[in-house]
Design a protein around this nucleic acid. Sequence first.
DNA 1: CGACGATTTGAAATCAGTCAAGAGCAGTGG
DNA 2: CCACTGCTCTTGACTGATTTCAAATCGTCG
Lengths: 254, 254
Amino acid sequence: MSPVTEHNLQPMVRKLSLWRALDEADVAALLALPHVVRSLNSGQFVAWDGDRPQHCCLLMSGFAFRHKIAGNGARQILSVHMRGDVIDLHNSLLRVADHNIQMLTGGEVAMIPFEAVRDIAAARPTVAAALWYETLVDGSIFREWIVNVGRRDARTRIAHLLCELALRQEMAGLGDRLVYQMPMTQEQLSDAVGLTPVHVNRMLMGLGADGLISRNHRSITVIDWAALAKAGDFETRYLHFDGRAAADSAPAPA
Amino acid sequence: MSPVTEHNLQPMVRKLSLWRALDEADVAALLALPHVVRSLNSGQFVAWDGDRPQHCCLLMSGFAFRHKIAGNGARQILSVHMRGDVIDLHNSLLRVADHNIQMLTGGEVAMIPFEAVRDIAAARPTVAAALWYETLVDGSIFREWIVNVGRRDARTRIAHLLCELALRQEMAGLGDRLVYQMPMTQEQLSDAVGLTPVHVNRMLMGLGADGLISRNHRSITVIDWAALAKAGDFETRYLHFDGRAAADSAPAPA
DNA sequence: CGACGATTTGAAATCAGTCAAGAGCAGTGG
DNA sequence: CCACTGCTCTTGACTGATTTCAAATCGTCG
């Protein structure tokens, strides 16, 4: 799909360009970041709760997820990540990881030494702003997830997550919001929305029965986007797609 | 309580100093930030979802909270803030607010023009790092709250929140983790943990009956901290108290 | 005193969880 | 080729934690 010659770090440039207008020198500096590419299998850990990560990991392909294990043994998935996401920025900058990061599917990561990221942020204000913005958007998604698990019923939670994954995959250039590959099992889905796998299954069957989506293996087809978004109480503002426009434009007219 | 001569922005310097070792010039620049002090009543809004904030607000006294209103009309509280917290950084930097910020009690905020914050971050790397760190710690707390509402039962959620408020108030220099003022009503508590006020009340009664806490009006006395922390599945790592030590120290021995 | 908001308590209803078992599908090895 | 294995998905019946509805109590303040 992507040209064979595409640079390993190109997906990061693509993502950060959504947030800030990077100039040629910024892009060159980003692409010049030292890194090691590792191929990871589904289920492999990228970061461990309590650890001191030495690298920032850029997800070049595949899917990953953040999660924590509660004291009762239950797992809570905190976010899902895809190509172009710098998945270990939070843990790296905080120095001691407060959550786990694990691969959802097989994929490749580019491991960039933490110091190199720190240095490029110090040297290039626009890159620093874009990286900061990236962590802030992650934060906004965390807030939305608090609302999702805290105040929405089961059906709404599932529909909301389906919408978010659809839109983010589209934004990452991985396809169409109306037809996409679901990278998660229903058990993982349940850990993301704070429900049991059994109940997630019932809700998915329900969304299908109501003609909002159809499923085939792990492929999701959204039959009626507007209806699904409504069922999922889904509004896009929290994804802050418009970061660049918002930052570059003149202040809003009073 | 605080000396009459204390500078308005001193609480921010105090908080940021937890995260990074600021030099004298950093502190001077922070204290020189232009700002306007406003006295706010309980319930007053500091930021509106969908708005474009023009200021970063430092909470000088009192308590505030972030929240969102779901499509079904339910409110989800996202975090609680106290003296020294720069409560509007997320919304300011993202340019379009994705949540509301409202006062929980009466209090004073120092409103700093957004551009001044942007400029001090650009000019002073240590201040920028401390501010970034502040937003990252907020993010870590959001993640813990996802776990709290997603994977803990009612009693555990309440106990967890009681522990967090106790410890953060102590860290902010507002008192003792074992005896503190609860700034929230039970209805607000319920919106923070994703339960109903009725059930929150039952759980609080239960914690009291079990001898973990006692309550008197809005004052909480923790009778048995270890037991409360255990009941609340509470571990402090996610608060990243040790940010400064972690950042300044040599890398951990392999 | 009276009014209002916050807290407390009880009883009934319900959404989601639990337990259990069967069905579908992919990979493995005989 | 096909049985075997393991994982995921699906369905049913039952249970239970939390919600809902309703009303009483308490405290504060004008």
